[in-house]
Design a protein around this nucleic acid. Sequence first.
DNA 1: CGTATATTCAACCAACTGGTTGACATTCGT
DNA 2: ACGAATGTCAACCAGTTGGTTGAATATACG
Lengths: 113, 113
Amino acid sequence: MAASLDTVFSALADPTRRAILAMLLEDDMAVTDVAEPFAMSLAAISKHLTVLTNAGLISQERRGRVKWCKLEPDALREASVWMQGFGMMEGLDLDAFERFLDAELAQPSLLEE
Amino acid sequence: MAASLDTVFSALADPTRRAILAMLLEDDMAVTDVAEPFAMSLAAISKHLTVLTNAGLISQERRGRVKWCKLEPDALREASVWMQGFGMMEGLDLDAFERFLDAELAQPSLLEE
DNA sequence: CGTATATTCAACCAACTGGTTGACATTCGT
DNA sequence: ACGAATGTCAACCAGTTGGTTGAATATACG
């Protein structure tokens, strides 16, 4: 999955999805168990899990009739690097940040030709 | 402005807005100058700046007929703390992270009653 | 005063989001 | 083989997003 900053940040922009990530921090979970505490349908949670998967924030592995959801925190790394570049956090990797800025600003579709 | 994680992350989810933030990292800028490199109308950029302002990521101060835009990186701090809580980055503040998780999970509107 | 500059507002539009429900496909247990 | 459990799919809906254009509002300049 191409986990761009776009997809990662927009996946994180929903409180339900952030809550799911927090739950998966504890342990891997089946879809039904993920859905259990929420006041919405299983289908809605299934969609949220798809969004998280597309963002690379979780992975899903089917075992029998149960689909296990697993946190994939690596996808947060590049987003975190981006944010740290604004100089407010410790542990800044300036080189990585510059690469991100260059790559993003170089997207021709975004800029005038 | 109530800069929630929702508004911060969803503001960051757009590449135009991230590019604007990167530009403001260099220096404060007028709205017209922010808009100049982009292939879209001034009105569109004005809307993006409103989104960024509502997220607390920038502030805008009118001086004469020019409205100056200024980066406000503090808004990134709580989002960055949230992300760091997933254990992949250095400088983790576990206490702050726990407080965030508790606050978010305690939102009753999200959970079944 | 009149005109150019800087920015927003209002109406509109297509596309996306986040939710619903009901039907469907798989797999497990008996 | 049957029935219950696990998830997804498809169609639908209301509300939001990201863009457009044209008019409106300040403010500054000469």
